[in-house]
């Protein structure tokens, strides 16, 4: 399945209106905000349609999923937006991750647990906010808001230390940027280890760079650490490959359109995460080029991307990070 889907669910008393943008969406936040009520309405409409009294508008079928036989219920379900309420332990299992990966459905999961087996984007973790009752006899309107919206785009920083999730090309790139300026750039060797590097570093301004498209499962933990240490800033582009593609270094027809609305182009059954799509796209775009330009996720950063002009173009995408000021 590809695309973004607006979902409007309402009764006489309550209304939810939100848009699902990719294959995995997480709903969490405070208790009492209406998460279970939402899944309950989806369930009522799925079972009885408009005769349930629930009004649901969406271009795809919205289906609730739960219980110990979840895998049987999921069998044969396609192009569907599947809602899973809190209390379903299977969402953390590798079996569920495999089933989700093999399917062409979108999943909306209510949970506070870190689901490390799923590629959760930091941009697709939502809370529910009530906008109140606009008038008598009008339902209370609930909308979703991005819980980590403020972290997805970095705040201003002149880093004295850079920590990258990546240990290959992404780390190569930022090492290339940092080395001449005397800024240390270290790799955490994967998202699971990033918080190991967050501890008291008085006098340092630390920039953490990770792939936002799959960092969602670590976001809660990371943000709790960042509450302890205010001299850390997160920068979470979709992925390093997205950053290279968005920089304009590669002139390819249609690329701008893809980057503007990735959900229109990314088939979830083919690419479990957007990170994988952008890697595939970059590798595809450079596969017929000389070896000095050819990109390989697992390899070192090709010399083409290390050229000063190209580095500047990439850094132009992240104006809030001031590397140059450090050279003064």
């Amino acid at each position: 399945m590809k695309g973004a889907y607006r979902i409007s669910v309402s009764t006489k008393r309550i209304k939810y209106d939100f848009t699902i943008n990719r294959n995995i969406t997480i709903i969490q936040g405070d208790s009492g905000t209406g998460k279970t009520t939402l899944v309950g309405l989806i369930r009522r409409f799925y079972e009885q349609g408009s005769k349930s009294g629930v009004k649901l508008e969406c271009d795809r079928v919205c289906m609730p999923l739960g219980g110990r036989d979840w895998y049987k219920l999921l069998d044969g379900v396609h192009d569907t937006i599947v809602f899973i309420d809190e209390g379903n332990a299977f969402v953390k299992s590798n079996d569920f991750a495999r089933a989700a990966k093999a399917s062409d459905n979108y999943y909306v999961i209510v949970t506070r647990e870190a689901l490390g087996s799923l590629p959760i984007s930091v941009n697709e973790i939502y809370g529910i906010r009530s906008n109140g009752k606009m008038a008598e006899n009008v339902p209370v309107y609930n909308s979703m808001y991005r819980l980590y919206g403020e972290f997805a785009h970095s705040t201003e920083i002149n880093p004295t230390l850079v920590i990258t999730e990546d240990s290959n090309a992404g780390h190569d790139f930022f090492s290339e940027v940092c080395a001449p300026l005397g800024i240390a750039c270290i790799s955490a060797h994967g998202r699971d280890k990033i918080t190991d590097y967050i501890y008291s570093r008085p006098g340092d301004a630390v920039l953490i760079i990770a792939d936002g498209a799959a960092y969602g499962s670590k976001m809660r933990e990371t943000c709790e650490y960042l509450k302890e240490f205010s001299n850390y800033v997160l920068y979470l582009p979709e992925s390093f490959e997205w950053l290279l593609l968005a920089s304009g270094i590669l002139k390819e027809r249609g690329l701008k359109d893809i980057l503007k609305s990735p959900c229109k182009y990314i088939e979830s059954s083919e690419f479990f995460s957007w990170e994988r799509f952008f890697t595939h796209l970059l590798e595809k775009l450079t596969e017929e080029t000389p070896v000095t330009t050819r990109y390989n996720k697992q390899g070192r950063l090709p010399p083409f991307f290390r050229r000063r002009g190209n580095i500047d173009k990439v850094l132009g995408q992240i104006p809030s990070i001031k590397f140059k000021d450090n050279s003064v």
Binding site: G29, S31, G32, T33, E86, G87
Partner: peptide
């Protein structure tokens, strides 16, 4: 709310262990 239910269970059945990840920060 799920969080409310869990709080009441903790209060009235302290001999049991409950999954408190059904509770929000509030």
């Amino acid at each position: 709310a799920g969080g409310t239910k869990t709080l009441l269970l903790m209060y009235f059945e302290p001999e049991n262990i409950f999954n408190a990840s059904t509770c929000g920060d509030n």
